[in-house]
Structure formats: C-alpha cells, structure tokens
Amino acid sequence: MYDFGYTKPSSLADAVAALAGDDEAKALAGGQTLIPVLKQRLNKPTKVVDLSKLGLSGITVTGDSVTIGAMTNHATVAASADVKRAIPALAALAGGIGDIQVRNRGTIGGSMANNDPSACYPSAVLALGATITTNKRSISADDYFQGMFTTALEAGEVITSVTFPVPAKAAYIKFKNPASRYAMVGVFVANGPKGVRVAVTGAGQGGVFRHTGAEAALSKSWSPASLDGVSISPDNMNSDIHASAPYRAHLVGVVTKRAVAAAG
C-alpha cells in the first residue's frame, strides 16, 4: 500500500466536496475491491474518502419497491425479512456474494460504483430495471452501465441508494469461477413491471448486459422450455483459463434456463 490521505466526512455534502476537484481521490464504501487494490499497490490515490458515516445504510420496502441505501452491506440485505418477502431473488443474490467476511463489509453502492464485470449486483439492477439515486440525480439501470468498470457516474457523484421495482417473478443463478468464486456466468431473470428482462454478468467483455434473445422468447412464454433453441453469440464473451468464450456462451443458455425454472 502506498501512503494516502484519509478522511471520514459525516455529511454527504462534505464527502462530495472532498471528492470534487481531485481526480485522484477515491471513495471508500465497503472496500472489498479498493482495499485489495491498494494493498497490491495497483492504485495510488491522493486520499481515500470513507463514506461510512454518511447515514447511507438501510432498507425501505413499500408495496411495489425495495430501496437499499448505498452503504447497506450484503449480509444485511441477505438477512432482511422485508427483502426476502418482496424480492427473494435479491436477498438470495446478496447472500451468495463472496464469503461471510465480504458480505459483512461489501456494500451495494460500492458494487454498483465499481461495476466489476463479474459482480453479482449489476445483474439484479439491470434485470429488475432498478433506479440508481445519487447526490445529483436518478439514473435508470439501462443508462447506468457503460462497460466494464465504467458507469454513468460523474466525477464527484456519490450513489446514495438503489430502488428496485418488485417483480412478479425473479431468480438469480450464478455459475462460479472455480478459483475466485466470482460469477463466471450469472443470470438474473425477472418478470415484472418493467417487463421480462434477463441480465447476464460475468460472461460479457463489456460487463453486465441484457440477453435480448432470451427476453424475446420468455416474453412469449415464461418457461424454461421456451428457451430451447435460443443461443447467444460467443463473440463478445470473456475468455480466460477457466472458460473460453464458446463455453461461457453455452453456460449463459444453461444458467438462464435454470434461473427461469427457479423463478417458477
């Protein structure tokens, strides 16, 4: 780790001010990516702005939506009776991220801001058509994800919460990378107010994406069988020592079917 400055502001305005005008400052949420990156000296921020004192954690469930504060950790989401009742697939997703230590530290805001191409949360946000709220505005999921580790967030913009519409049916299935246990292919399927949406994480070179072929088939008939014959091109899939692009493309098909079956 290189030396860096550290500040823990107690208001959102102070946090934004600390980040503003300093391209080399980094916001710290749960730190599950940033801290390892700092330890490996892969990043040398001028200062780290700790967001943990901004009061951004908490869960609000209404009849048709679930709003999760940006600093709410995965374990809290996984254990929330309200989330389990409203969107059980979301609670299950949170409960399957990393390990206990990661879930007790990692946050939804951190995951969204980082937009790791193998993170779990982006698939739920995109499939459910969630809205990302920041200190400046609201951003729809379709506008938010702009490629691997790239989002619509501007410099000095801080996520405050994410709001998910409650779907009729949803499920998330993850095929884990055998070594890292990140999603090698993770598919979130949803049938809800935003229509039938299928989002795939882990597989694509550009990060999370919508599987439009599967969406079209499932819109006609919501059943695993309706996905027979639906395939996806390996052209834009990731390839590494654990899975080639064609294998990932194949797994997208298998995992999507299993997710639909799990959603019922």
Partner: peptide, 11 residues
Amino acid sequence: LLSGSFMDYTM
C-alpha cells in the same frame, strides 16, 4: 504465469 494468485489458481 497466468495462475499466479488464488483468483485464478483453484485450491
């Protein structure tokens, strides 16, 4: 060495 960490080397 491609499998140079536990992210890629499967224990």
